[in-house]
Design a binder for these strands. Structure first.
Lengths: 211, 211
DNA sequence: GTGTGTGAAAGTATTCACAGCC
DNA sequence: GGCTGTGAATACTTTCACACAC
């Protein structure tokens, strides 16, 4: 069976785990390890060996019975599973503290994410270097998206303008949005949205602290 | 049956949804709405009415049959469910761009989270105002935690020192950690850990973009 | 009539346990 | 012997559908 052939039925809970496996494997690779068993990897990431084998089984057979997984090979396969065997074009909209902090994160390029530009509405930061070439004015958002084929818009604007900016980005053809602004945003159907939300995270901690 | 009495068996998937319900209800309250049905709320947050009723049923009976929910009352009950009927003491460790961005977020206090201090290892920022009173040196971390009864440590340090800082905070008695540093951290058993991870979020988007 | 609260059913996800291969 | 890959079993979550209260 060809690897990567069953993507239609991958449980959504599997996807974030794959990224953890990948990260841990890259760490092990950097330490010079060449082989790993599902048991060892499970211990490292804090899960059950069967979980790892099941997760991988949705994509193919990557191990050797009686031996385990060859790390270099498994990393390659996981990258294919996650769509990291190609590169993706991203922009950050909102060049405040948060946007700048994200732009400075070294690890974008390492996994094949090209941060092409930052956008900001405030005249005073236009043209300034915030870690990824000059900051562009928001008026140029649609044109830039269309000209560069942007895959991911990372939104770090103030709450008040976030939904409007997201609508504009999606209308201009951006197929996925990662929203850090403190609102519950929504996008129309074919687009993909993920939210990172400090307030929700704090409330979850509060719940479990209170139990 | 007393509200809030069944917390032992609340599905973990329910907890983040409660925080969304609460946010949406607060929005509606601000708009002057006084009553809402599970159907209306479900439409607003993009879920199923039965889901909302089931989620609430883990905590008690908050609605009126044939009518719906009285918004003021439901907000109060949800706050109790989430442990937001009291206040929590938080600190931010790491006063870089990200830490400062989080500190400036107005919405901490609004939900009962008191941000008591920021910590940083770098001498150059000690004492500077980053939005929450002066930044303190990391040497004072343990003493401050013990003296002020810190409930939540928000970690925005560089990757290299994050695990060590988390270990120190937990050892000093912090029962919960929200980690923004780009590593997969771990904490010893009774402590609670949540991770916010740009790299994982990007990989999840990559996976679905690729499908 | 309307809409909640909740058992029961359907749908997902995780874990077990073992056949099969190294 | 050791470890993978996977059907079967278990556990968990969501959705349905209806008795009951307003």
């Amino acid at each position: 069976m060809p690897a990567n052939s069953k993507k239609h039925s991958v449980p959504s809970a599997t996807v974030p785990r794959l990224s953890q496996y990948l990260r841990k494997l890259q760490e092990m690779q950097a330490r010079g390890t060449t082989t790993v068993s599902s048991r060892q990897l499970a211990e490292e990431v804090g899960t059950n060996p069967a979980q790892i084998r099941k997760d991988l089984s949705y994509f193919g057979e990557f191990g050797i019975r009686g031996v385990g997984y060859e790390i270099d090979h498994l990393i390659d396969e996981l990258k294919k599973c996650l769509g990291l065997d190609r590169s993706w074009n991203a922009i950050i909209i909102g060049s405040g503290k948060l946007g700048t902090a994200l732009a400075r994160y070294r690890g974008f390029e390492k996994q094949g994410f090209n941060l092409l530009a930052m956008f900001d509405a405030s005249k005073s930061v236009i043209g300034k270097n915030r870690g990824v070439g000059p900051v562009l004015p928001t008026d140029q958002l649609e044109q830039f998206i269309r000209e560069h084929g942007i895959d991911i818009a990372i939104v770090t604007t103030p709450a008040g303008v976030a939904q409007n900016i997201i609508d504009r980005a999606v209308a201009a053809g951006v197929p996925s949005v990662l929203n850090f602004a403190p609102i519950r945003a929504h996008v129309d159907k074919p687009a993909i949205l993920r939210q990172v939300d400090l307030s929700t995270e704090l409330m979850i901690l509060s719940f479990y602290l209170n139990s």
